[in-house]
Amino acid sequence: MSIQHFRVALIPFFAAFCLPVFAHPETLVKVKDAEDQLGARVGYIELDLNSGKILESFRPEERFPMMSTFKVLLCGAVLSRVDAGQEQLGRRIHYSQNDLVEYSPVTEKHLTDGMTVRELCSAAITMSDNTAANLLLTTIGGPKELTAFLHNMGDHVTRLDRWEPELNEAIPNDERDTTMPAAMATTLRKLLTGELLTLASRQQLIDWMEADKVAGPLLRSALPAGWFIADKSGAGERGSRGIIAALGPDGKPSRIVVIYTTGSQATMDERNRQIAEIGASLIKHW
């Protein structure tokens, strides 16, 4: 067993022997301040990774656009098919120029040779490549099948209805392509620590998230040296922004954090800054 596999296998073990965790309302004060600064709703939840206990939450059962955070769930569904012998990570998928959609920095470079399922998941999570996500959605049967996968996990809230990039439209009061912070946090925890996926697939999923290259201005910008984070960000229309993450000190994750916002007129930089400040408060009061 590799060191990384050992780390993920012992996530519940280490967490069980940690000192009790206590909620700190100071972080919620910052979440509410972010709402004021952005002029928009902000949803927040913080779960203990081992027990699933909610440590703090704000608007945990209000719907927010998922945006690209759905790509972690998508690759979880792909990995479940791999575990069941219905898919192979090494299978190569070929596609054409007509398949390319807006923001496809990886797939646009491989029109000639195609990409493997493993490479597509890596591109979808680490670079948020939209064509990679659409190609992977095709392998599982489309958005409705991802929703069905989530329902089978016990998540009857999260739903995907459309493809990239239309799913980022974020129309107010439109339930399409949305989740709730509580539902997303619980589902992410199941994917990373539950028995739904094999140990190898859980490790692969967290490795992809740990290698995320496009979430630097968010929670990662607030992390002290030595902290662990595996995350996936999302951005959408109407001032929408979000991030889902597993993080913790001492090089291992111990909490799940989900943050979503929508309806702001603020710039992307300002949305990023507010999420980073929430992260800084979380870490300060850990």
Rank of each mutant, 00 (worst) to 15 (best):
I3N: 14
Q4S: 13
Q4E: 14
H5E: 09
F6L: 10
F6S: 08
V8P: 10
V8G: 08
A9Y: 14
L10W: 07
P12S: 12
P12H: 13
F13Y: 11
F13N: 03
F14L: 09
A16C: 14
C18F: 06
P20D: 15
P20Y: 03
P20I: 02
P20M: 04
V21L: 07
V21R: 06
P25C: 09
P25H: 13
P25Q: 13
E26T: 14
L28T: 09
L28R: 08
V31W: 03
K32G: 09
A34V: 13
D36C: 14
D36R: 15
Q37L: 14
L38M: 11
L38V: 07
A40F: 04
A40Y: 03
R41C: 06
R41D: 07
V42W: 09
G43W: 00
Y44M: 09
Y44G: 02
I45N: 03
E46V: 09
L47H: 03
D48M: 06
D48H: 07
L49Y: 12
G52Y: 05
K53A: 14
I54W: 08
I54S: 08
L55F: 10
L55A: 06
E56R: 09
E56G: 13
E56T: 12
R59N: 09
R59E: 03
E62T: 11
E62L: 07
E62F: 07
R63E: 06
F64A: 01
F64R: 01
P65V: 04
M67R: 01
M67H: 07
M67W: 01
M67L: 09
S68I: 00
S68L: 00
T69K: 00
T69A: 03
F70D: 01
K71N: 00
K71I: 00
K71H: 00
V72E: 01
L73S: 08
L74E: 04
C75N: 02
G76N: 01
A77R: 09
V78S: 03
L79Q: 03
S80G: 11
S80P: 01
R81W: 06
R81Y: 08
R81P: 00
R81H: 10
V82L: 06
A84L: 13
Q86S: 15
E87Y: 05
Q88T: 13
L89M: 11
R92G: 06
R92A: 09
R92L: 12
I93E: 05
S96R: 12
N98M: 11
N98S: 14
N98I: 14
D99H: 09
L100S: 04
V101L: 08
E102M: 12
E102G: 09
E102R: 11
P105Y: 05
V106P: 01
V106T: 07
T107M: 05
E108A: 09
E108G: 12
E108I: 12
K109T: 13
H110S: 08
H110A: 08
L111T: 13
T112D: 15
T112N: 13
D113N: 12
G114A: 05
T116E: 11
V117G: 02
V117N: 04
E119H: 09
E119V: 02
E119D: 13
L120F: 04
L120Q: 02
S122N: 15
S122F: 13
S122A: 12
A123K: 02
A123G: 06
A123Y: 04
A124R: 00
A124Q: 02
I125N: 03
T126C: 11
T126H: 06
M127W: 13
S128W: 00
S128G: 03
S128R: 00
D129V: 00
N130H: 00
N130V: 01
A133P: 02
N134R: 04
N134D: 05
L135V: 10
L135W: 02
L135P: 00
L137V: 08
T138A: 15
T138Q: 15
T139D: 11
T139W: 06
T139R: 10
G141T: 05
K144W: 09
K144F: 13
K144I: 13
E145I: 10
E145D: 11
E145S: 12
L146V: 11
T147H: 07
T147P: 03
A148Y: 13
F149H: 07
F149S: 07
F149V: 09
F149G: 05
H151L: 13
M153C: 15
M153R: 07
M153Q: 09
G154P: 04
G154V: 04
D155I: 01
H156M: 08
V157D: 15
V157K: 15
T158N: 01
D161F: 03
D161W: 03
E164M: 00
E164R: 01
P165W: 05
L167G: 05
N168F: 03
N168V: 06
E169S: 14
E169Y: 11
A170S: 13
N173G: 14
N173S: 13
D174L: 04
D174E: 08
E175Y: 13
R176L: 08
T179S: 09
T179K: 00
M180E: 15
P181L: 03
A182I: 15
A183D: 07
A183P: 07
A183Y: 10
A185E: 00
T186R: 14
T186W: 15
T187P: 00
T187D: 12
T187Y: 03
L188N: 02
R189Q: 15
R189K: 14
R189T: 10
R189P: 02
K190P: 03
L191S: 04
L191F: 11
L191D: 00
L192R: 01
T193E: 14
G194N: 10
G194S: 14
G194I: 05
E195L: 04
L196A: 15
L196I: 15
L196R: 15
T198H: 12
T198S: 13
T198K: 13
L199I: 15
A200E: 14
A200H: 15
A200M: 11
S201Q: 06
R202A: 10
R202L: 05
R202T: 15
R202Y: 05
Q203W: 07
Q203G: 13
Q203H: 14
Q204V: 11
Q204N: 14
L205H: 01
L205Q: 02
L205C: 03
L205S: 01
L205F: 05
I206K: 12
I206P: 01
D207S: 15
D207I: 10
W208T: 03
E210T: 10
E210N: 10
D212L: 02
K213N: 11
K213Y: 09
K213W: 06
V214N: 07
V214R: 07
A215P: 05
A215D: 02
G216H: 08
P217W: 05
L219N: 03
R220S: 04
S221E: 10
A222K: 15
A222M: 12
L223A: 10
L223C: 13
L223F: 05
L223M: 11
A225F: 10
W227Q: 01
W227N: 01
F228E: 04
K232D: 00
K232E: 00
K232I: 00
S233P: 05
S233L: 02
S233C: 02
S233Q: 01
S233H: 01
S233F: 01
G234P: 00
A235Y: 02
A235H: 02
A235Q: 04
A235I: 04
G236M: 02
G239Q: 03
G239W: 01
R241K: 06
G242S: 07
G242K: 00
G242W: 00
I243Q: 03
I243H: 02
I243A: 04
I244R: 00
A245P: 00
A246C: 12
A246L: 14
P249V: 06
D250P: 09
D250G: 13
G251T: 10
P253I: 10
P253S: 09
S254R: 11
S254D: 13
R255D: 01
R255N: 02
V257H: 01
Y260P: 00
G263H: 07
G263V: 04
S264W: 04
Q265D: 12
Q265T: 14
Q265C: 10
A266C: 14
A266D: 09
A266R: 13
A266H: 10
M268K: 06
D269V: 13
D269F: 12
E270P: 03
R271F: 04
R273E: 14
R273I: 10
R273Q: 10
Q274R: 11
I275S: 01
A276D: 05
A276H: 14
E277K: 10
E277W: 06
E277I: 12
I278V: 09
I278M: 09
A280G: 12
S281P: 03
S281H: 13
S281T: 14
I283P: 02
K284G: 10
K284H: 10
H285N: 14
W286R: 02
